[in-house]
Nucleic acid binder design. Structure first.
Length: 582
DNA sequence: TTAGGGTTAG
């Protein structure tokens, strides 16, 4: 850094500011600024703006704002740079407020300003403001500018308005890697994984440029689909194209491999990384957790010496402990959160503890824990306790919990099914009927169940009672064949999983049409004897299908890997890695 | 001088 002499000229200051900006050297920057004041040097608009940008880049928004506030004449660049600073720090409200002030004094935003301010239009009131800014951009003819356009489409996608986002994308007079990635990731972030993959294929075939961000977004969609074959292909493509393995991309690969069932490969990538962020650790912890490898979760977490855990880390660790029955370890870690205070536990963390206690059969303790929480219990928390009541046959608390769920979300079919399981387990068939009646009275909705299997570079999807599949007859015959075989080995269909008001024979038929069973049968038909059959389900796996899979694994000597909404179930020799709790 | 897309959880 140059020495500040008694007299520094414009070029001297400019060059010093540039150096500070490049190095992110805030204190040096402040010295340069102080020198100007001390020597009564009056910077022009350009130099003042440079000072402001330097402060933004060095992370001191307070200093930047001070410069802006004392500027006698503010340039559009200074307004935009300040809004950008707020936006990058997540201070969206401040960014929007400044934008409004700018409009109020008659300053006209340019394409830079629009592209920036639109990134602040997130959160509950984000879209409301965003739509108004969109119409302003339209009036000033900036809406089809490539940067403004990609900001706009990203804003709509993040607000769930994916059709509007796609419309804007289609209208862009030119597209590039950022706008293409924005729309793909928009679909992926909404869980519209197939759409994301289809769009990627189309754009890729049209010759779209791809970079590490594009591939990271695409891998998110492949994680969602558990499409291991595609995932491997994309990994290969990344290597062949010599796309730089930035941390973000490696994190996506860790996530993709573990969610596609190959957690050992995730660990290889994790171990090979020259530098890791908290997200790398989180992705690895989540991977172990989903596979029920709780001891690995705790071990890895305890080795996080140089990296600061965040809220997601604790979620991953507590969920991992819960899924593996490491109750005391989980409770200790939750206690440490309360003691250390570096990460304040939120309601999700409390929910993990309810799950931990419930799984261990400490139902009353879990119940009291909910009542003592500093938060209002959510349906998810009551739902977790209801599952525990089913596992540990606690009808008394189960009924109470069901009432709470009935108040909070009467339309959720899941709660009715679990209560019905609880009653059936206790042999209270009249109450099973009552639940069914209750369900009829309320308009209960259920997200349609879907299962899929990734075979021969194609994702085969099945719906419950699927009548559209070209091989439906062979598949149904295979399901029946398996059914007969496992029945001999002691499988009894769990009719309490069906809440339709039909006779038992019909219930059996409905159960046999569940998408998981169709996918299992299809997998049995198309894989070699030794291979693991990998099935994915969009919801939680039902009790009967879980049981079906266990019998199939035993009777047919096959290994099944079932990924449901929450975790993997590795089913081998008649038992499941989840220990029948999920 | 100022600008857009990204990875973990839910």
């Amino acid at each position: 850094m140059a020495v500040l002499g008694p007299e520094v000229c414009f070029h001297g200051y400019d060059s010093l500011i540039t150096q500070c900006m490049g190095l992110g050297a805030l204190r040096e920057g402040q010295r340069v600024h102080a020198h100007m004041i001390k020597t009564h040097y009056h910077p022009n608009v350009y130099l003042e703006t440079r000072l402001l940008i330097m402060y933004v880049k060095c992370g001191s928004l307070r200093d930047a704002r001070m410069v802006l506030d004392v500027m006698p004449r503010r340039s559009i660049v200074s307004w935009t740079a300040m809004i950008s600073g707020y936006s990058q720090s997540g201070l969206h409200f401040e960014g929007l407020d400044l934008f409004l002030q700018m409009l109020k004094i008659g300053m006209k935003p340019n394409e830079y300003t629009f592209a920036t301010v639109l990134t602040s239009c997130t959160g509950p009131f984000g879209l409301e403001n965003g739509i108004q800014i969109h119409s302003l951009a339209l009036k000033s003819n900036f809406d089809t500018h490539i940067f403004v356009g990609s900001s706009l489409l990203d804003m709509y996608a993040k607000s769930g308005k994916i059709h509007e986002a796609h419309r804007i994308f289609d209208m862009l007079p030119e597209r590039d890697v950022v706008s293409g990635t924005a729309i793909i990731s928009g679909y992926a972030q909404l869980g519209l994984d197939e759409e994301a993959l289809d769009l990627f294929r189309k754009l890729f075939n049209d010759g779209m440029e791809c970079n590490y961000v594009t591939f990271a977004s695409l891998l998110t969609a492949l994680s969602g689909l558990a499409a291991l074959n595609y995932g491997r292909q994309v990994h290969g493509l990344v290597v062949r194209r010599e796309v730089p393995f930035y941390v973000v991309l490696q994190n996506s690969l860790i996530d993709m491999y573990s969610k596609c069932g190959n957690v050992a490969y995730s660990r290889r990538i994790f171990d090979s990384m020259p530098e890791r962020t908290t997200i790398s650790w989180n992705a690895m912890l989540v991977g172990y957790g989903k596979h029920g490898l709780g001891h690995e979760v705790v071990k890895l977490f305890k080795s996080m010496n140089m990296v600061k855990p965040d809220g997601v880390t604790y979620m991953a660790v507590l969920t991992g402990c819960s899924h593996s029955g490491l109750v005391d370890e989980g409770l200790d870690i939750f206690e440490s959160m309360l003691d250390e205070k570096s990460v304040k536990p939120d309601i999700e963390h409390y929910g993990c503890v309810v799950d931990l206690l419930g799984r261990a059969g400490r139902i009353e303790k879990a119940f009291n824990f909910i009542l003592d929480m500093p938060f209002e219990p959510t349906p998810a928390i009551w739902g977790s306790l209801l599952s525990a009541c089913r596992l540990h046959a606690n009808v008394h608390i189960g009924e109470f919990v069901f009432q709470r769920l009935l108040d909070l979300e009467p339309e959720n079919a899941g709660s009715y099914v679990i209560l019905s399981n609880i009653y059936a387990n206790a042999g209270r068939w009249e109450d099973v009927l009552k639940v069914r009646q209750l369900m009829k009275e309320k308009t209960v909705t259920k997200e349609p169940g879907r299962s899929w299997i990734d075979l021969d570079k194609t994702v085969h999807t099945f719906h419950s009672g699927d009548r559209t599949h070209p091989q439906k007859e062979e598949i149904n015959a295979k399901v029946m064949e398996l059914f007969v075989k496992i029945k001999e080995a002691g499988y009894v269909p769990d009719l309490s999983c069906v809440l339709h008001d039909v006779d038992d024979e019909q219930k059996e038929r409905i159960l046999l049409g569940h998408s998981e069973k169709l996918a299992i049968a299809f997998g049995m038909m198309h894989t070699s004897y030794n291979g693991t059959i990998r099935i994915v389900k969009n919801l939680r796996i039902c009790v009967d299908c879980h049981n079906f899979a266990k019998f199939v694994s035993k009777v047919c000597g096959r290994e099944l890997s079932l990924r449901d909404k929450n975790r993997f179930h590795l089913v081998v020799g008649g038992s499941c890695s989840c220990g029948d709790y999920w």
